[in-house]
């Protein structure tokens, strides 16, 4: 078991380092998307959605079934996003809203219950045949040379899609009336009602958007990890780390956090001595860094200090 695995130092093998960083940025942007979904929900409803990953998992599996049934890829992608959106809205309306004014732990437990529920449902429906299932990517997996390193087209595709999603969200929140209403609701729901904002609809929309963003993340991850009912769990954990790292109420924080976590994960896996740490310790190490960061900034790097609520 004991082996010393230590990759050549970055200056001796810059190509390896570059590859690790770029693929870290690619997975990191997936974490950033899921973290964004978590932040969207946390900002608007003060809920940590532990079922975020499982919602995405369910959508991705549904897409797999649709692809199998012969629907064209772009239609399926569109349906997948719509499905994520609808699932988010549905969850908020049916099981989150009734517990919103109840003790905060209740919401936590409801999302945890949803986590278990969705996971089990997916196992029931899709775990009949062989697992994991292959999920293809429209970008393909060819290696290409970028100036410093070789990366796959799928990684590049991930980066591009993530950028598009972030841009769309940015425009929505900062340059539309709807976004204004959603931000206002997140800051002060009472005053928003007085402005004539339909607060209930904004909350539902927040969950719906999060569901859609999560679905996009799901379809970007699946080609790498393949599909099985737990495939989003690790992603969700890194996304939590990312969201907490950046500050649970800060969308830019979620993006920075996601990229940081993605790169850190890869570097820990590559450049730590194998007999003490090594690749299988990259999750604990990343989480350790997270906890250390929290010690110095309990509200994350970009989070607001909570002063409003007592």
């Amino acid at each position: 078991m004991i082996e010393v695995f230590l990759a050549p130092a970055p200056w001796n093998d810059p190509e390896l380092f570059g590859e690790q960083v770029i693929s870290g940025l690619a997975t990191g942007s997936i974490y950033a998307l899921v973290a964004l979904a978590i932040v969207l929900i946390y900002r608007s409803t003060d809920v940590i959605n532990f079922a975020q990953g499982e919602m995405a998992m369910l959508v991705t599996f549904s897409m797999w079934s649709l692809l199998l049934a012969g629907f064209p890829a772009w239609t399926v992608i569109f349906i997948g996003i719509a499905l994520g959106f609808a699932l988010g809205a549905f969850v908020e309306r049916t099981i989150i809203r009734p517990v919103e004014d109840k003790p905060p732990l209740n919401v936590v437990v409801v999302t945890l219950g949803l986590f278990v529920f969705l996971n089990s449902i997916a196992t029931w429906i899709w775990a009949q045949g062989e697992l994991p299932k292959v999920f293809s990517t429209p970008f393909g997996f060819t290696s290409v040379d970028v100036s410093l390193a070789r990366v796959t087209t799928h990684s590049i595709g991930i980066l591009v899609v993530a950028l598009i999603v972030m841009a769309v969200l940015y425009l929505l929140f900062n340059h539309t009336k709807l976004g204004l209403g959603m931000r206002a609701t997140a800051h002060n729901p009472g005053a928003s009602r007085l402005m004539g904002v339909n607060v209930g609809r904004m909350l539902m929309l927040g969950w719906a958007l999060a569901g859609a963003v999560g679905a996009v993340a799901g379809m970007l991850v699946a080609p790498i990890t393949f599909l099985f009912p737990g495939f989003m769990l690790a992603v969700l954990l890194y996304a939590f780390a990312a969201a907490v790292f950046g500050g649970l109420d800060s969308p830019p924080g979620a993006i920075v956090g996601g990229l940081f976590v993605g790169v850190a994960e890869n570097l820990f896996g590559t450049y730590t001595p194998g007999d003490i740490f090594g690749p299988e310790m990259k999750l604990p190490l990343t989480l350790l860094v997270l906890v250390i960061v929290l010690m110095f900034r309990p509200q994350g790097l970009f989070g607001r200090v909570q002063t409003r609520r007592v």
Partner: peptide, 19 residues
């Protein structure tokens, strides 16, 4: 007052005109 403290003055006014 119940202003939206972290949003700009202009955004607050725009919210007043939300309907």
């Amino acid at each position: 007052r119940q202003l939206f403290d972290e949003m700009t003055v202009h955004e607050n006014l725009m919210l007043g005109a939300y309907t």
